[in-house]
Design a protein around this nucleic acid. Sequence first.
RNA 1: GCCGGAGUAGCUCAGCUGGUUAGAGCGUCGGAAUCAUAAUCCGCAGGUCGGGGGUUCAAGUCCCUCCUCCGGUACCA
Length: 658
Amino acid sequence: MNKKRYLVTSALPYANGYIHLGHIAGAYLPADIYVKYKRLKKEDVIFICGSDEHGTAIEISALKEKVTPKEIIDRYHFANEKAFRDLGIEFDIYSRTSNEIHHKTSQEFFLNLYNKKLLIKKSEKQLYSEIDKKFLADRFVEGTCPICGYEEARGDQCEACGSNLSPLELINPKSKISGDTPIIKESSNFYFPLEKFQTKLEEWISKKTNWKSNVKNYCEGWFKTGLKDRAITRDLDWGVKVPLEGYEGKVIYVWFEAPIGYISATKELFIKKGDPEKWKEYWCDDNTKLIHFIGKDNIIFHAIVFPAMLMAHSGFILPENIPANEFLNLEGGKLSKSKGHGILVKDIVQEYNPDLVRYVVASNLPENKDSDLSIEDFKTKNNNELAGILGNFINRTVVFTKNKFNNKVPERNRNDLEILEDIKKQTEVIEECYENFRFRDALNETMNLARIANKYFNDSEPWNVIKTDIEKCKHIINNCLNICYSIAIAIYPLLPFTSKKILKILNVENSDLSWDKIGKINLVENVELGTNEILFPQIENINKSLENKMEEEITITDFQKLNLKIAKVITCEKVPNSKKLLKLKIKIGKDERQIVAGIAEHYTADELIDKSIVVVANMKKTKIMGIESEGMLLAAKINNKLVLITTDKPIDDGAEVS
RNA sequence: GCCGGAGUAGCUCAGCUGGUUAGAGCGUCGGAAUCAUAAUCCGCAGGUCGGGGGUUCAAGUCCCUCCUCCGGUACCA
């Protein structure tokens, strides 16, 4: 019988931004907890992750910052790698898709499908720049929108009117790289026949009775719409080159190549370990359970696209489970980079004990639905739970030992194992949680160990017993110290740093942790303890500013780009068929113009007439629901309240705001 | 507009295929204790399970409808 193996992956973070708590809650912390638990159970498990480093977004960031893509990916790759490490998230390997081994692996994968004639070749007219010497990907083209006339529409979409475009539709297209006017040229690209795999996928997923319902629901949604073939190559520089002659200047699309990163990273891991063939045990052997930890935005890729790719390639195992999480909100608001709302890991670890961060996130994991995290939690959970329940038990036990028994493990002197058995029994409850990917429950049940322990301490009253029966007291404290050790093991998946600290306090730093040791007698009598330490000092104040650290700072020059003016509303009417749009005519000095504003849910058209408002006067023209808008009015918004910005005292329209 | 998801105690959330008095953690309150980071332990708190209607012997749990929020997708030439 072959032993079961676990191959655990966390979604490859895109190397175009810093990791924040939403990411951690979605894909990384649950995976790390799971892996640590499996390791305690002495299971064969490897934990794979790495940076996803290709794609247009990175290339565009590089273009914007006038640096090479390599600089961008290096910045985020190393920063994120460190962020994970700081949080105690320990991958066996944190690789990156820019590595040579990944390029090679992806190309082999591609060729495998190509040689089987599975890929569909489609020729399409594409824009080609003779100066840049390449085909221009959608987002590298700019031109006039054929629908609304907006002059800087992107190749894929017009930001002004929202129309989806293809670069060929643009009037006067220009290369965003060189400004060159591209010509139309035939370009052929390959498509992956996803449609063909739909039946097989549906069948496969229908058998996955232990998958979370949210994951299955998403899949069913996609099936219902019908899977469509997806382009697998595109005209770009930055990425894995298409390994065929005549396809120079084309790369493999990131969605295809990134998940292969799990395979390349596994290869890399075993090359480093000096056993270069061993990766196959994890990817090609049915005794291995492949588990992808991801956020819900990634479900389509891990539950549908990648499995289809693996089926097409054949020889690989398919995922056993995909315990995708929903999204983590912060103070009721969505975590989003663009809105400057969120907590970056690199910042939070400066502020708090990483185990506290793990604890707060783990107790709020969005396992069944989007969840909400409050900054206040860092304080209350630290003080009330970690310090009060867990830290306190360790501390009261150790301090008691120090004061009454010379800081040495007192002797056992009776045959009473009941409390240790209770502890053991509780761990079975915890195990069940882990096996079912219920990490929030696991955390709660783990804390119950400390609750049981505190109760035992209270009920046993060693501070009284010592006055009448010192032997009995020794036994009690011996139990408590052994419970401390058990707790150190049990909390290890959740609070690895604290676990180590407890071992140090117990002076058994080098002991090999194993789940089986929980509820057993592990400490040697009369051995002296180490130095005590307060595990979770009380937190008095919390730093609310953390949530805003994502906001970009600007200079006065940036501000001056805005041309803010006072305007007077002349007429105003509701835009038919819209929920929140009002169309208003405004007067800015001599200038009269029309703007469309999304405030109908807060103001009626009549209320606005004659009001003095503040508008951004140099806003690019745009069309909203087909209506031209030549500016943007300012309003303050919080929760669901919205009020217009107006002036303190009357002032003529046209006045500048600065 | 359409398709999903969600709306359960003050807060954060559990409640599988409908079935005894709707649960947990934290907070609040009362009590016990004082070894411990004013930490612990015990007890209590009574929430029309978003509104309304329906099916059923029985619904938080199924059906219809409405409201609110969140995703996805479409359209508004």
